[in-house]
């Protein structure tokens, strides 16, 4: 392995985790990459973890071959509205969900391959001014749409054939929802963060808002990435894309905050910052399991362990350029790193 292939651990005492390059996927068209994700895909009785890459006008599915190689097997063309993001559906096989739009999401579509004739199909699930969308367990999607006055928070169930079945609405808060997160430990609980920095908790079964709690920072538009409940408290990992540098804690990419849902009081638990000597603000990122990863303004990717708060790996820009995207695979043992030219690098995180 060259120095470029093996990401450096930020300090000697953190060499217990590393990112090791496994493979590189390259779209021959050199189109700009907008997102990357993984999906389980079954064919001929064999279910494999595949990679999905999104460019502005097409989505490609890559199947694994021997020796860490990948082969592009399907490409769905979406020529009318640009692709904004892939929406991972945690327990769904043979289905890719995508959000399309110009400045904000205007459509959510499901992409699939017909089991009858093998043709590629698309199914429109939702249209509107969609502010946030998240794939939930049990084949569901949640989205917030509309204006503040007529905001709609909707849960949509997705069938195996790629159709949207049941629809249920949740009570809208009087604030625009910008992000959602499922609550691990409470199957029927969902949280969302708002444009004026509240954390909203819903009961998914009844649609009730159980509480709306101030996040507690002056920074607007906090984004919730992961939530879990333990010992009667709600732990939430947040990012603050618009935060300004703060003397006391620098500029953490993520923070963990604990809320008491009964009293709406909260306090900071942990900051996830870069180690001394490294700089860069949070651009975008993802949290999965006990790991958080972020692309920074320096063009590097940083990875943190949620329990220790330590930065466990730093992936500097490589010879081809800065990183622009970072996603975890279905498990958090694999990291997908994307660049503007459409290249996607697969790293094992161990």
């Amino acid at each position: 392995l060259t120095a470029e292939q093996l990401a450096v651990a930020p300090s000697d005492n953190l060499r217990d985790r590393s990112l090791q390059l496994a493979s590189k996927l390259k779209n021959p068209s050199s189109s700009c990459a907008v997102d990357v994700s993984t999906v389980w895909w079954e064919s001929a009785g064999c279910t494999e973890l595949c990679i999905v890459t999104a460019c502005e006008t097409f989505i490609s599915l890559w199947k694994p071959l021997a020796s860490n190689q990948w082969r592009k097997v399907y490409t769905w063309h979406l020529t009318e509205i640009p692709v904004i993001q892939i929406v991972p559906l945690p327990d769904v096989c043979n289905l890719v969900c995508v959000a399309l739009g110009d400045l904000e999401i205007g459509e959510i579509r499901l992409l699939l391959c017909s089991s009858e004739d093998g043709s590629l199909k698309q199914s429109l699930v939702k249209t509107g001014n969609i502010k946030a969308v998240l794939g939930l367990t049990n084949r569901k999607l949640v989205s917030s749409s509309g204006t503040l006055q007529d905001q709609q928070i909707e849960i949509i169930s997705v069938s195996e054939a790629g159709r949207s079945n049941e629809r249920q609405t949740l009570m809208p808060p009087e604030e625009t929802i910008l992000a959602f997160a499922e609550v691990e430990g409470f199957r029927d609980a969902l949280v969302g963060t708002t444009a004026v920095n509240s954390l909203v908790v819903w009961n998914l079964k009844t649609g009730q808002i159980l509480n709306k709690m101030p996040v507690g920072y002056s920074y607007p538009a906090s984004i919730c990435h992961r939530a879990y409940s333990d010992s009667g408290l709600l732990f939430v990992v947040l990012s603050h894309p618009h935060a300004k540098e703060n003397e006391s804690c620098g500029n953490p990419a993520f923070r963990m905050r604990v809320f008491n849902p009964k009293t709406a009081r909260s306090t900071g638990v942990m900051f996830f910052s870069l180690p001394p000597g490294h700089s860069g603000r949070y651009l975008e990122g993802e949290v999965k399991g006990v790991s958080a990863a972020a692309v920074l303004t320096s063009g590097a990717i940083a990875v943190w362990d949620l329990f220790s708060g330590q930065c466990t790996a730093l992936l500097p820009p490589n010879a081809d350029g800065n990183w622009s995207l970072v996603r975890w695979s279905v498990t958090d043992s694999c990291l997908l790193a994307g660049q503007k030219d459409g290249s996607v690098y697969v790293y094992h995180y161990s």
Binding site: N203, T206, F259, N260, K262, T263
Partner: peptide, 23 residues
């Protein structure tokens, strides 16, 4: 964090808030 920071904690917060919240 202590209970005094966050107020009284309930392990059954989800059920209790579901009973109290408007539906």
């Amino acid at each position: 964090c202590s209970e005094s920071d966050l107020g009284p904690i309930s392990l059954n917060w989800f059920e209790e808030l579901s009973t109290e919240a408007p539906s």
